[in-house]
Design a protein around this nucleic acid. Structure first.
Length: 302
DNA sequence: GTCCAGGTCGCGC
DNA sequence: GCGCGACATGGA
């Protein structure tokens, strides 16, 4: 076992900020290499850095629940360079969306009455992955499968192609597009049981690596939602539902999802269990402008 | 054994 | 542009 060194990094978020709400806002926290320790209220994650080193990050909130101080406890086996430290901070800021401004959302929430008021305490930061690639793979693995299946498939991908943490080789990072693309389809298929999603994920990795597709550029905030949706739908395996999920993860909240969960929730809460057309269901959140998805998500998870 | 999952693709019209 | 069957896999 390699010797372990520890480094503490701190990050200050802007108020209002709610660490636990942010991390557990949706299912991603339960997908490897993320792990939520509910006792210690820490988000643990194995992460490979640009220089190749694989580290273990334990992310938590300092002090009380309304503190804006975030501590990243890094376990590493090689020395952590200044670049490495900066990269970790950048990754954590990205995952927790510390640079997103929700003040316009809270302004609407403040006018919607008591039910939506708690939103103003930092709701809206939905946990995301360090890369768009990882979010795409995870989203593809939520289609036409139950949640247990999603967790199994993501674990298989990581076990087969992730990079081990030197101090505990059972724990691995999420593989890069290159890690997957460098295996031929047969090898990739043999090591995972992703059903027909195997083709989609391998093709996605290959197209990223050969330069056909630059999915990280999807993070550019200047891209209009409609254009971004087109780019997403052009990816094999991404349809209407998956594109809506990805738009949410990419910080575009103006579109509502089109999946069974959305429909069921809205029918039950607003239409006495009766099904109505999608357009009618969407009217429920029309007062939320470009924040519709977050209004729905708040309503759904409350 | 059989059904189906927070769908998507590719075809035919 | 819309309807419809096929699609891999494992868990209920």
């Amino acid at each position: 076992m390699a010797a372990l060194a520890k480094t503490f990094l701190t990050i200050t978020a802007e108020a209002p900020f709610d660490f636990e709400q942010t991390v557990t806002a949706h299912g991603w926290v339960a997908l490897l290499p993320n792990h939520w320790n509910n006792q210690s209220k820490c988000l643990e994650r194995i992460q490979q850095l640009t220089d190749g080193q694989v580290v273990q990050m334990t992310i938590s909130q300092a002090g009380s629940a309304d503190s804006t101080e975030i501590i990243v406890h890094v376990n590493h086996t090689k020395s952590l360079t200044t670049d490495g430290k900066e990269e970790i901070i950048k990754i954590v800021r990205h995952m927790l969306r510390l640079d997103e401004d929700f003040s316009a959302l809270y302004a609407i929430a403040g006018k919607k009455g008591a039910y939506y008021e708690p939103m103003m305490q930092g709701f809206g930061r939905l946990l995301r992955s360090p890369t768009v690639f990882e979010d795409l793979v995870k989203t593809i693995c939520t289609t036409n499968i139950q949640w247990g299946g999603t967790k199994r498939m993501i674990k298989e991908i990581i076990d087969a192609f992730g990079h081990p943490f030197a101090a505990d080789s059972r724990q691995k990072s999420f593989p890069s597009a290159w890690d997957i693309a460098q295996k031929d389809f047969k090898t990739f298929n043999a090591k995972t049981n992703l059903g027909y999603r195997t083709d989609y994920i391998h093709l996605l990795a290959c197209r990223i690596c050969n330069g056909e597709l630059d999915v990280e550029s999807f993070l550019n905030p200047a891209i209009k939602t409609a254009d971004l949706k087109k780019k997403l739908l052009a990816i094999k395996g991404i349809g209407n539902y998956a594109a809506a999920t990805m738009l949410m993860l990419l910080g575009h909240y103006d579109a509502l999802p089109v999946d069974s969960v959305f429909r069921e929730f809205v029918f039950k809460k607003y239409f006495k269990g009766k099904s109505v057309p999608q357009a009618r269901a969407e009217k429920i959140y029309k007062g939320w402008g470009k924040w519709k998805y977050l209004a729905y998500w708040y309503d759904m998870t409350r």
